[in-house]
Simulated scan of single mutants.
Amino acid sequence: MLSDPTQPVVLFALEWCEFCWSVRKMFAEAGIAYRAIDLDSVAYQADNRGGDIRAALRSLIGVPTIPQIFVAGEHIGGATETFDAFNDGSFKVRLAANNIPFNPDMTRDAYSFLPKWLHPR
């Protein structure tokens, strides 16, 4: 899942998760194509495949939370780490270094994609 060169940006997500929705919205506005692994989707329910992937992911990165984002096989982090990296420019640098297309003119604060019910950071 992490080594497919045709889908170098991977989002491990839950369909119902508002933080996952926020990352998806930011990726859409920034023109970042990605592969979503929705661990709670019907496609991953058989034989607890989604749960097994989540356990393997936790073992790999040591973090239990979702979403988790990878670029070209490298772990970026969850929503907060991804938003921080986008805002400080390091996410765009990583995309460019891996020849992953994106809209460099999208400069909106990544945290603005979070649900409005959240308290400001």
Score class of each variant (00 low, 15 high):
60 L>S: 13
22 S>R: 02
72 A>R: 10
84 D>P: 03
1 M>V: 12
8 P>F: 08
102 F>R: 03
52 D>F: 05
100 I>T: 03
47 D>L: 09
18 E>H: 11
108 R>P: 00
74 E>K: 11
89 G>E: 08
119 H>T: 11
6 T>F: 14
75 H>D: 05
2 L>H: 00
77 G>D: 01
120 P>Q: 10
36 A>L: 09
116 K>S: 10
81 E>P: 06
94 R>L: 15
28 A>I: 09
113 F>I: 06
37 I>D: 01
16 W>A: 09
65 T>W: 10
89 G>D: 05
80 T>H: 06
3 S>L: 14
43 A>E: 10
119 H>V: 12
99 N>M: 05
83 F>L: 07
69 I>Q: 02
38 D>W: 05
87 N>R: 10
89 G>V: 11
94 R>C: 03
8 P>S: 09
57 L>W: 05
55 A>W: 02
79 A>E: 06
88 D>K: 10
35 R>P: 01
27 F>D: 02
94 R>P: 00
91 F>Y: 13
98 N>H: 15
109 D>Y: 06
118 L>I: 07
1 M>P: 07
84 D>L: 13
100 I>L: 11
104 P>D: 12
25 K>L: 13
109 D>I: 05
20 C>D: 00
81 E>Q: 15
7 Q>K: 15
65 T>P: 07
96 A>Y: 02
61 I>K: 10
5 P>L: 05
115 P>I: 13
107 T>L: 12
78 G>D: 04
49 R>Q: 15
103 N>P: 00
2 L>Q: 00
95 L>D: 02
116 K>F: 06
51 G>H: 03
33 A>V: 01
76 I>Q: 10
55 A>H: 04
70 F>N: 02
69 I>P: 02
34 Y>A: 02
31 G>S: 12
119 H>Q: 15
21 W>L: 14
36 A>P: 07
74 E>Q: 13
67 P>I: 04
6 T>G: 08
78 G>K: 07
71 V>Y: 05
115 P>V: 11
33 A>G: 03
106 M>F: 08
17 C>G: 04
67 P>D: 02
15 E>H: 12
13 A>N: 06
79 A>V: 01
93 V>N: 00
5 P>E: 06
80 T>W: 04
24 R>N: 00
31 G>N: 12
90 S>H: 12
46 A>L: 12
31 G>L: 14
109 D>Q: 01
